[in-house]
Design a binder for these strands. Sequence first.
RNA 1: GCCCACGUAGCUCAGCUGGAUAGAGCAACGGACUUCUAAUCCGUAGGUCAGAGGUUCGAAUCCUCUCGUGGGUACCA
Length: 544
Amino acid sequence: MRNKVLEKLQGTLVELNFPTDTVIIQNSKNPDHGDFSSNIAMILSGKLKQPPQKIADEIIQKLFELNSDNFFSNVEKAGPGFINFKLNKNLFHGKLLHVLKSDTEFGKSSIGKGKSANVEFVSANPTGPLTVGHGRGAMLGDTVANILEWNGYKVQREYYFNNAGRQMRVLGQSVYSRYLKTCGQDLKFDDEFYQGEYIKEIAELIFNEFGDSLMSDQNPDYFKDKAEKFIFEDIKSSLKKLGLEFDHFYNEQELYNSGKIQHILDELDSNGLIYQKDDATWFKGTQIGRDVDKVLVKKTGEPTYRLPDMAYHKTKFERGFDLCIDVFGADHIDTYPDVLAVIDQLGYDSNKVKVLIHQFVTIMKNGEQVKMSTRKANFVTLDELIDEVGADVVRYFFIMRGMSTHLNFDLDIAKDQSDNNPVFYLQYAHARMCNIINRAKGFGHTINLKADLGLLKEDEEQQLINQLLKLPELIEKCSIQLEPQLIVNFLHEFASKFHKYYAHFKVITDDKKLTDARLILIKAIQIAMRNGLTLIGINAPERM
RNA sequence: GCCCACGUAGCUCAGCUGGAUAGAGCAACGGACUUCUAAUCCGUAGGUCAGAGGUUCGAAUCCUCUCGUGGGUACCA
């Protein structure tokens, strides 16, 4: 509808011989300002050297001349020169019925149709349980993936992990050391080792299976592998509790096995982007606009994380994705520019990669900040949180804030508020909508598509309609902005409008015609609310 | 030092590509359930949008500087 207003306004400007390139139509925040508004008169004021008020008058007059189809029910000049548009209500009513027909499809868009997207997120190495800190990336990634799917993309959710590097080696050693202790050997447990209880658990598991027969094992990889498998099961089960399943796990080891690491080194070499210094192989980042050169292969012969990252991202292009999303925590902020620069050097288009950086989650417990470290095992696990407050609350908590803000997660409040949480505000709204429909059915009122929607005369009703019809454009916008919070804000505002309406008006009354009309409205907003909640992965209960 | 984020009510945060009187929730205070579930609604109070300049018809939003917070600047990931 916004586009239609835009067209009409542009047409009018052409008739008046005014420039049309800077036309902006905005949604009105304040209902007194109509359904849409435009600042065009103020923009043109400078160009035409005329007062905005005068320009606005001319435009409005011409608009009325061209309004033979009664598209606009009113157009007014206001404030410093805004033009406010009020649309014919019949237009909205037609759309309302369309929502009912679309049902579960309402809000979906096809702008990504035929395109494929890869969303890489979580990507935590299997050295310990997922922490609350990982939760944010997990929920952002999953929701972004949902958003892309709703826009027609074929989406692959991918988890990249590293089981070849130093961290994993230390993990294996940690388990081995615990195992020796379990076998009764008295030795000091190295401070550098992973300290968590789960290490003991794994060691005991191994002990129960093999007794002390592995004490002099010459193959420590066994301990590493066992730990990796155990921890990965734990990670997957945490994610599953949040309704999250990955389509693909990409293992760094594959990059070595398939020769892709060596291959990209050769490619960089032939592009003159690497050199040897101090027994290490360096990446000449400064040559392609980076601040400093970085080590790609240490003097031990082991690559740094940067090299496999490059090779890995190259595979994303080789696999033919039209869009690649990387969800990283702020601690990875320095790794991706090198990767993107290399991608461009290799002849790919790095614009297809969108890197979403989310700031850290600060955990507060008993009024104090908890410093998280997997190795030191002073983390709060995602599992504990889910068990405490439930999956819906966890999901909501992690996407309700903009990803660029530092999220303050007060565990005490999260627990205290678990039954007073903002997510329930949305769910309760949905439950109320469903309840109305069910109650109505009990009184013999079913949805009557021939209802006279002209009876929806209240401002509150018009506002609900206005907003619900904006869901599709919002979802499209999200596929560009990639910010789940926009959906959350929308739903919260929507629920608020509904609760307000609910408190002031009754849907089921003795007035059959009015009841029919309002039921259509309720059904439409119930569809919008349910679809919105589904989009962000939160349950839409029919009763609470 | 340099690079990237962020700084809005007592607290946690919104504020859409610059727009009309800066908004919610929590906490405080006062109201509303014989009426579709009060997990709700209504009202009161609470602000130098970190600070200073600049851009313009118009700035919380864009630019510059200062201060503060977090992150990065590893032959850790």
